[in-house]
């Protein structure tokens, strides 16, 4: 018992070190832009770079649209599958997991082949079209997380009976989705949204191959050409991810307070 305890603590410490040391190293390195003293010079340089602001802004906008489109696709789908096609649930679940199995590079080459300028739907021919394509690509990447989050949120509801109760009160499908289902899975959608945000901000392959000015390719560019700034960028990117994770925790904690089960 005692020794077991000690061993698990050692294992935990080892894991923490393995995880934390590179981070600490990066952080430390990012602060050493000025010779001899710690400084925020690298951060200052990054933050004042107009390209940083441009690409970061672009990725944030893309992330927001991805979240909206994702929620718009996933919430009705997960609801409908639970309500009318419960037997298809494993199939749908499998489909939503595909983006984890198929590398983004495959997806993007598929896109480029399918939607090139000489195809039936030449999306890559215009900037707007390419943005749409990138947005759909991001939505696909976020699908596994978004679907899982929403489906888990729906599990706590008696979807069928609530739907029937609303129907008997005169509600149609849009009313049911907007006034009943969405508000009840909003917490789940939010936690899916934060993961999506973190994914989109750091995504490289799709944006790079579709040649859009996103944050991921910018990080790569800086990494290839500068010394301290990449470390600062890495720390910034990590912080964003962590803030997102923290927000997920916060949001789920908050939800437990307001909606304790009867």
């Amino acid at each position: 018992m005692r020794t077991q305890r000690i061993w698990s603590i050692i294992a935990l410490l080892f894991g923490l070190l393995y995880f934390a040391l590179p981070l600490i190293g990066t952080l430390e390195f990012s602060l050493r832009a000025r010779r001899g003293v710690y400084s925020l010079d690298a951060y200052r340089s990054v933050l004042s770079d107009p390209q940083f602001r441009e690409t970061f802004g672009y990725s944030i906008v893309m992330a927001i649209f991805t979240i909206l489109v994702g929620a718009l696709i996933v919430v009705p789908t997960a609801y409908w599958v639970r309500l009318k096609l419960p037997r298809l649930r494993p199939v749908v679940e499998f489909v939503t997991l595909l983006p984890l199995v198929i590398p983004p590079i495959v997806i993007v080459f598929g896109y480029i082949r399918l939607y090139n300028t000489s195809s039936f739907l030449p999306l890559t021919g215009s900037i707007m079209g390419t943005n749409v394509l990138l947005l759909l690509g991001y939505t696909t990447l976020a699908l596994p997380y978004m679907y899982r989050a929403v489906d888990t949120g729906l599990r706590t509801l008696d979807v069928a009976t609530l739907t029937e109760a609303a129907q008997s009160l005169g509600a149609g499908w849009t009313t049911i989705l907007a006034r009943l289902i969405l508000p009840n899975v909003l917490i789940a959608v939010l936690s899916g949204a934060f993961i999506t945000f973190a994914i989109v901000i750091g995504e490289f392959v799709l944006a790079s191959l579709l040649n859009r000015p996103a944050f991921g390719p910018y990080m790569q560019l800086v990494g290839a050409n500068k010394a301290y700034e990449p470390a600062a960028l890495a720390v910034i990117a990590f912080s964003i991810t962590w803030i997102c994770m923290g927000l997920i925790q916060l949001v789920t904690r908050f939800s437990k307070h307001t909606k304790a089960k009867r």
Partner: peptide, 18 residues
């Protein structure tokens, strides 16, 4: 069902939790 104007009460109450 939403055109019949029929009231329904369920065993599981089915109140809208939000």
């Amino acid at each position: 069902p939403n055109q019949r104007n029929i009231g329904m009460v369920f065993q599981a109450y089915a109140l809208f939790p939000n």
